[in-house]
C-alpha cells in the first residue's frame, strides 16, 4: 500500500501549495487524479517519487517510511520524455539506469531491438516514452506515477501504451496514480478517479 498521511508542501516562503493531503493507493489499483493547472499535482508526483521532500506529514510504501534507502519502489513517468533522457546517451545506456531489465518487458512495450543503438533525437515521442516506461518498470517497482504520460502523444500511440501498461500492472500487481486533464482517458483506464481539490484534508 502507498499511504500519504497529512502531507503539506510549499516552495520556500510562498503560501502552502497544498496542506494536509491524504491518499491511499493499493497494489494493482489504477487511481486517476485531475485538477486545475498549478495546484500542485506534479509537485505531489515528484514527492511520491522521492525526488522532493514534503514539508509536513509522512509517506509509507508497503510499510516503509520515506525517505527510502536503496531502490525507490515508486517510479515516475513524466509528460515530456525528451526532457528526461540524456540526449548524448544511446538508448541502451538510458535503459541501464533502470537496473537489470527483463527482455520480455521490452518486447511487451513494443521496443524494437534496433532502437537500442539510437540516440534519443532519432526516436519519436511515443517511442521515447516507451523507453521511459521500461526504465521506470524495473523488477523492484511497486507503484507507478504517470504524470500526463500520454498527453503529448497521438490517440493511437496513447491507446497502445495504456493497453500495455494496464496488462503489465495486472501481471505484476503494480499500483498506478494516473494524472491527466483528459476525463475520457481517466474514465477508460482507472478504477477510481479523484479531484485534486478533494484530496486535501480528507481521508481516502
Amino acid at each position: 500500500m502507498l499511504e500519504v498521511n497529512g502531507v503539506s508542501y510549499r516552495y520556500q516562503n510562498n503560501p502552502w501549495l497544498f496542506k494536509q493531503l491524504n491518499l491511499v493507493i493499493h497494489p494493482g489499483e489504477v487511481v486517476g487524479l485531475y485538477g486545475k493547472s498549478g495546484t500542485g499535482k506534479t509537485t505531489l508526483a515528484t514527492i511520491l517519487a522521492g525526488l522532493k521532500k514534503q514539508a509536513q506529514g509522512d509517506i509509507k510504501v508497503d510499510g516503509n517510511l520515506y525517505p527510502i534507502k536503496g531502490f525507490q519502489p515508486v517510479q515516475l513517468v513524466w509528460q515530456l520524455p525528451e526532457k528526461v533522457v540524456n540526449p548524448k546517451w544511446r538508448m541502451e545506456k538510458v535503459l541501464a539506469e533502470g537496473g537489470d531489465l527483463d527482455p520480455e518487458l521490452l518486447t511487451a512495450l513494443g521496443i524494437n531491438e534496433e532502437w537500442l543503438n539510437r540516440y534519443p533525437g532519432e526516436l519519436s515521442g511515443g517511442e521515447l516514452q516507451r523507453f521511459c516506461l521500461a526504465r521506470a518498470l524495473g523488477p523492484e517497482t511497486r507503484y507507478l506515477i504517470a504524470d500526463e504520460m500520454t498527453t503529448m502523444l497521438d490517440a493511437i500511440t496513447q491507446a497502445q501504451i495504456w493497453h500495455t501498461v494496464l496488462q503489465l500492472v495486472k501481471q505484476r500487481n503494480i499500483g498506478i496514480l494516473a494524472i491527466s486533464h483528459d476525463p475520457h482517458l481517466l474514465k477508460r483506464v482507472c478504477d477510481r478517479i479523484i479531484n485534486f481539490d478533494e484530496l486535501v484534508g480528507n481521508v481516502y
Partner: peptide, 12 residues
C-alpha cells in the same frame, strides 16, 4: 480515442 473504442492499432 478513449471516448470511442480505445483500440490500439499495432506498429508505429
Amino acid at each position: 480515442l478513449p471516448q470511442n473504442d480505445f483500440i490500439p492499432l499495432k506498429g508505429s
